Amino acid sequence: MVAIQNSSHTLTPETTLRDIIKTIPSEYFEKKPLRAWFGVLFSLVAAALGYASIAFSPWYLLPFAWIFTGTALTGWFVIGHDCGHRSFSNKSWVNDLVGHIAFLPLLYPFHGWRFKHDYHHLHTNKMGEDNAWYPFTVEEYEQGKGLISGVYRLIRTRFWWIGSIIHWANLHFDASLYPERQQEQVKFSYRLVIVFGAISIPALIYTTGLLGFINFFLMPWLVYHFWMSTFTIVHHTMPDIQFKSPDKWHAATDQLTGTVHCDYPAWVEWLCHDINVHVPHHVSTGIPSYNLRLAHKSLDENWGQYLYKTKFSWELMKDIGDRCHIYDAEKCYKTFAEVDPAKSI
């Protein structure tokens, strides 16, 4: 659902991202150490409560404990996300330290993610460049027939929630995928993750058994990836949001109109530090997560008619999964049935 309302600014081909940024009050870009560290404390307490609930819950309440804990760990990722964008602290070493610590329990390499994610922000919804939920063309789908296209079908339909796991595994543990100047940092991050996992996972299994590994790590980790997959696909994938070829892509237009604001249950938004308030984040990555709502309100007042707003529901995910399959330059997407009628979804 796109919200249409009056706004005081008009988006034209001459509009730049700087023009949009200038309409957001400058104080919303200010880093506030107390707010940032309160977010860290909040997520630490939330995760501790989650793990305590796993430890003491009867078996029939464990799914709720897994969901709460995995969602709290998604908040850890959002703190690392701020660090990656240098919106947590003015000191790079603090951003790197906190980012690595926040990402380690998720087994996520910080620098590898940071570089790929920055590239996503530079080329949001640009065909051939964006690396977040990039849609296959008909030609790419046909060329990938077999395992690649089969996995693509899964994550574009009812198994969208494993997309983040595939993205994590494919892009962040291979330094050759990065420019040479970034490779040493990428190697440092994924080696740190490997060492951490090689120590912590056997220790967890030794002290709590295989069931403890499933309860305390695997299930919350899968919930975390559920939210990562869901947030990411919803942020930029709607039946009426167009990925564009580089010659037709326009930074201001496609960052503002190609990014989705989605409302989730309040407890999810609290635990995940408002990462769902995503339009201002694509206008400027310099806005800390605790100022996203204020920045969104400003954008709504100035550019409201261009903002795409929706609400999370299973119907929304079904609509995306039923329609947003193969890139189409005219109508945004074709379904698998249109390009591969011999197969059913």
Results as ranks from 00 to 15, higher is better:
128 G>I: 02
68 F>R: 06
24 I>F: 12
113 W>I: 00
140 E>N: 07
195 V>D: 08
336 F>I: 03
38 F>Q: 14
26 S>M: 04
127 M>V: 05
137 T>E: 12
234 V>P: 02
108 Y>K: 06
81 H>M: 14
265 P>H: 06
58 P>S: 10
165 I>H: 14
231 F>H: 12
292 L>W: 10
298 S>Q: 13
237 T>R: 11
33 P>R: 14
190 Y>D: 06
331 K>S: 09
213 F>R: 10
296 H>R: 03
147 L>V: 09
81 H>P: 04
169 A>I: 00
176 S>P: 00
159 F>Y: 14
201 I>S: 13
114 R>F: 01
212 G>S: 13
32 K>P: 02
2 V>L: 14
232 T>Y: 01
85 H>C: 03
320 I>S: 09
60 Y>T: 06
11 L>V: 06
280 P>Y: 02
304 G>Y: 09
327 Y>P: 05
304 G>V: 04
66 W>C: 03
218 L>H: 09
33 P>D: 12
118 D>M: 12
197 G>M: 08
302 N>C: 03
292 L>H: 13
280 P>D: 12
110 F>L: 05
104 L>P: 01
53 S>C: 07
9 H>R: 15
76 W>N: 04
17 L>I: 12
65 A>F: 07
112 G>A: 05
222 L>A: 10
242 Q>A: 13
136 F>P: 00
208 T>V: 04
287 I>P: 11
203 A>P: 03
26 S>L: 06
19 D>H: 13
277 V>A: 12
145 K>P: 00
78 V>W: 05
291 N>S: 15
169 A>M: 11
206 Y>V: 13
288 P>F: 01
112 G>M: 01
181 R>Q: 13
212 G>R: 11
266 A>I: 11
99 G>T: 02
116 K>P: 00
279 V>L: 08
120 H>S: 07
20 I>R: 12
181 R>M: 01
90 N>T: 10
52 A>M: 11
294 L>V: 00
117 H>M: 07
205 I>L: 15
166 I>M: 14
324 C>N: 08
